[in-house]
Amino acid sequence: MPKITHFESIKQYCDFNNQGLLHPQIALVDLSLAAPRKLQRMQFNFYLVFLKEIKCGNLRYGCNSYDYDEGTLVFLAPGQVIGEAGKEIYQPIGKALAFHPDFLIGTDLAGKMDDYSFFSYEANEALHLSERERGFIEDSLSKINRELEQAVDKHTRRLLVSHLQLFLNYCTRFYDRQFITRANANRGVLTKFEALLSEYFRSGQAEAEGLASVAYFAERLHLSPNYFGDLIKKETGILAQEHLQQKLIRIAKERLHDPEKSISEVAYGLGFKYPQHFTRLFKKVVGMTPGDYRKVG
C-alpha cells in the first residue's frame, strides 16, 4: 500500500509548501511557492479547500472531466485521504485554504459545519466555477488573507470566522447552481438509481443483504453518499433516505395484497431483520398496521 503523508498541524502544511505561518489555526497557502514534488497520497488533520488554477484535466486529485476550466474547488474534511502515488514530478499551482476544527470551537460556525456536506464529496465531485463565480471566491479568499496579515487583536478570530462562513455560503450557492446546470446528467443518475432500487427488491437482494441504504446505492453509482444524497434532494425535493422509504412502502403494499404471503414473509423480503420493525415503520408512514391495511385492502 502506498505511503500516506500525514499533516497534523497547519504549520506543518505551511512548511511543506515553503510558506510562512501567520496564524497557527488558519492559513491561505500559495501552492506555487512549493517545490516541485512527486504525486503522493496525503491526509490532513484539518479542513482544506483547494482552488486549482490549471486546466481541470491536469488536476492531481482524481478529477475525471469538468464543466468549466476557469477554476475548481476541492473540499476535504479532517481525516480524508486524497491524491495518488506516482513517480511523476509536478509543480503545485493554486491556493489552499486550511483551517483547524479547533479554530471554530465556541463559534456559530462550529455547529453549522455539517451543513456544508460538500466537505464529504469525492474529488471528482468538485465544484467547477464559472469566471464570475471565481471572482466571488477570490474576493472572499483575499479578505481572509488581508485579515491574516493584520496584527492579531481581540477582533481577529471573529472577523476571520465571519469571512470564512461567507466563503462557505458562496460555495453552497455555487454547488446549487452546479446541480441545476447538470440537470440532465442528474436525471440520468436518478433513472439508474430507480432501476437499481427496483432490482434490489425484485431480485431478492433485500432479503439477503438487509434494508436498502443510501451508501449502498451511492457506491454502485460511483458517487459519495453525501453527493448522492444532495443530488437526490435537489432533483426530487426529498431526502434520499425518504426516497428509499417511499419505495419500500409501495412494494410492501403490493406484497400485502398477496394472501399467500404472511406479514413476516413480507418483512423479511423487504430486508427487515425483525417483522416488528416493519410493522412499526409501516404504521408510522401509512397510519395503520400491515395487518389492518391487508383487511381494508
Rank of each mutant, 00 (worst) to 15 (best):
F217W: 07
E122A: 14
T107F: 09
E147C: 01
L129K: 01
D108V: 07
A123I: 05
L221W: 01
F174C: 08
S162D: 06
F174P: 00
D139N: 12
Y121P: 04
D176E: 14
F167L: 14
T191H: 12
N124W: 10
L129N: 05
A212E: 03
A218G: 07
L221D: 05
S198A: 15
L127T: 00
S203Q: 09
E122L: 15
D139I: 03
E207K: 09
T172Q: 15
R157T: 07
A123K: 03
A206K: 00
N184Q: 09
V189W: 03
K143R: 10
Y216L: 15
N186G: 04
C171V: 08
D108T: 09
A218R: 01
F179T: 00
D139R: 09
V189H: 01
E125V: 07
F193C: 09
A126H: 07
L141M: 10
E194T: 03
A206R: 00
E149A: 11
T191M: 14
M113E: 08
D153I: 07
R202A: 15
L221T: 01
S140R: 02
R177F: 12
L109I: 06
Q205I: 06
R202I: 13
E138C: 08
E125W: 06
E131M: 11
L141Q: 03
R177I: 09
T191V: 08
H163Y: 13
S117I: 14
Q150M: 11
D114L: 14
G135D: 14
T156H: 09
N124P: 02
L109G: 05
Y170C: 08
G135W: 10
S120N: 15
L148V: 00
V214E: 10
Q150W: 04
M113S: 13
H163Q: 06
E207P: 01
T172I: 11
S120G: 14
E219H: 10
L211M: 10
F167C: 06
L196T: 00
N184M: 07
F193N: 04
N184K: 06
L160F: 03
L164A: 00
L109D: 03
L141F: 02
H163D: 02
E138V: 07
I180S: 11
E199D: 15
T156Q: 14
F136G: 00
K112W: 12
A151W: 08
T107H: 09
D114H: 14
H155N: 11
N184W: 02
L211D: 03
A183S: 05
S142T: 03
N145D: 07
M113T: 13
Y116T: 07
D108M: 12
G135M: 12
